[in-house]
Design a protein around this nucleic acid. Structure first.
Lengths: 200, 200
DNA sequence: CACCAACTGGACCGTCAAGTCCAGTTTGCT
DNA sequence: AGCAAACTGGACTTGACGGTCCAGTTGGTG
């Protein structure tokens, strides 16, 4: 890998940006490299210069999409340390999905479904989900340390439950074009958390 | 649509069968019609004779996959009318996923993710999920009628919660190659049900 | 300012995809 | 038996795809 000049970095970023949007809107297999080039205003040689081949681009897009999605949740969850904060997070997630009229689910979830059998991308996405989960684990750890959560509650288990609810909710919401499944799924998960609050 | 002779029906079925397997293993976009023909031992003209084009085949595969997946759950859930029965169902789902070593998630979920932006397939899949949900609704309705469930519990809401948990659990299980997310998601959903049992 | 690596444009290639076409065979019906 | 509809095989067309190549430009560093 050669080191990037600032111009090179900008070109690379434009390609990744365009590919990220197209992959989300049409899927990886349905998106041609020519479409990526047209959308980013670059040429074949540039794409191959930076990514080697389509697989390389796919991995770069996974990394970028992870940054976007997980990054946003991290910013929101960073200083959540209460059930009330989690409910605000749920409301924000639902509102965002409503805003886009339930079109399209979770970008990472879509990639995970499409690339379930491709070893490298699958491993990369497993990592993304682990990172995502870790921010939820952070919330529950803080809640336990502040004695909001019962000491026997498992932050890791709660985090997994919330993330599965989120993914399942987004899938059904996108398919049915109604935010209801997402609302119900997240409410269910948070009720689970509520049931593990320290008895008082 | 011409009416089918028994030979025609068999040919049609062989094509759908092969396409169903290939679409699941590699995705719709990644699967060529030639591959379907090779796997089913048929020819171009037969495929176009029965399905018109690839989109037609996709819809037929959705219908067939729905029959397989929803049909299997229907058979299991048909005479479930208790929380214990639901736990047995959960155990069966988890065992099945373990049996296939967590490779690949829900066939319908994968199609829904890949075809989220394709109007016709998306609508067909929304229907499939509704059918799936309806069998869960049946379980909860029976439980409420037999007074196992509190009268204010909503069968429809519980069904949606269970289905989202199942879908999210399968996605993360397939991505992480561990049955843990699926176990946790379904346990969470059933605990939700348990919390709505009639107080005694 | 000179040099070399980083970068770029776009023509080009081989392959394989979806879809068309038609001549020929089988099937069910009368 | 005979006829029309259902069915089949596979050659063929057209175009788009991923990927290669190379000649040329830009830009940072000594």
């Amino acid at each position: 890998m050669p080191r990037l000049s600032s111009r090179g970095a900008a070109t690379r970023a434009r390609i990744v940006q365009a590919a990220t949007e197209l992959f989300f809107a049409s899927g990886v297999a349905e998106t041609s490299l020519d479409a990526v080039l047209a959308a980013s205003g670059t040429s074949k040689s540039q794409l191959y210069h930076y990514f080697g081949d389509k697989d390389g681009l796919v991995l770069a897009v996974i990394a970028h999409q992870t940054e976007l999605v997980v990054g946003e949740h991290e910013r929101f969850l960073r200083d959540v340390d209460s059930l009330a904060g989690l409910y605000r997070w749920r409301d924000a997630v639902v509102a965002e999905q409503r805003r886009r009229q339930c079109v399209g689910g979770c970008p990472l979830g879509a990639l995970a479904a499409e690339l379930a059998f491709a070893p490298q991308p699958r491993a990369a996405l497993a990592d993304s989900f682990r990172r995502w989960e870790s921010h939820l684990v952070g919330v529950f750890t803080r809640m336990r340390e502040s004695d909001a959560l019962a000491p026997e509650a498992s932050p890791a288990e709660l985090a997994t439950m919330v993330l599965t609810a989120l993914q399942g909710g987004l899938l059904l919401t996108s398919t049915s074009r109604s935010v209801r499944p997402l609302e119900l799924a997240l409410s269910m998960a948070l009720e689970q958390v509520a049931g593990r609050l320290r008895a008082r």
